[in-house]
Amino acid sequence: MTTDEPDEQLDTLAPADEARIRALLSDARETDPMPAPVATRLDEAIAGLAAERTHALDSGYESNVRPLVRTRRHRVVAVLGAAAAVAVVGLAVGTFFDDDDRRVPNSTSADTGVDRGTAAYEAEADAEDAEEPNRVDPTDTAATDQTPELTVTSDPLGVHSRRLVRDLAGLRDQFLPDPRSEDYTRSPTYVPSGFTCDTAPVANAVVVGVRYDGAPAYVAFHSPMGDSQVVDVLQCGTGDVLRSTTLPVAD
């Protein structure tokens, strides 16, 4: 018997026991069809991929990636005025990074947050006067080198569980137009104005504050491995991984 694994002394199994084990395994096989929620989710993912491909082909994406990505980035995030940004960051930093229980409830943002999803991304792409994100670094005043670089965006960003891959891909297009070149060690963090969440973001990842199925959450884009990138949706307040998936990374 040839094998590509290290030699190992195989236990001998009586033929009767082997037959019995095989029968038990056979009896435990899955015979139910794919559950409807899973089927729906996967159908959504495929539809999203197909739409993305159609859009890419229409836009000449495959032949000229960088210019389009740069353009989308320019369009994506409108920025608060400098004074407003400073005020909001003051609030956000306090609620993000303090260990104390100083969370400031923000029912207004929760109540008025709009799950914008992909449609909003496309609508934003049509905006003519968008600006680059206005990066505000909280380390300017007192922070340490480990403090993530924080950027405040203008609007809540929606991610929906039923179109997770599509929404995350859209989010990545916004904030990581070139995933391979991003400096993940800085843990750059993007949060919408008024976004509050007292869970410290993960290290070595690009973190984006979103509304996941309507509730505040983080999306963590980890450093790509090979041609894929692990993306986690983290629960606000606990940091638990709500969902995890991988996105392909183009060469």
Binding site: M1, T3, L10, D11, T12, L13, E18, I21, L24
Partner: peptide, 11 residues
């Protein structure tokens, strides 16, 4: 080999 070892462990 994997099947054989797996069955032995299951046994």
């Amino acid at each position: 080999s994997r099947c054989s070892r797996g069955r032995a462990r299951l046994a």
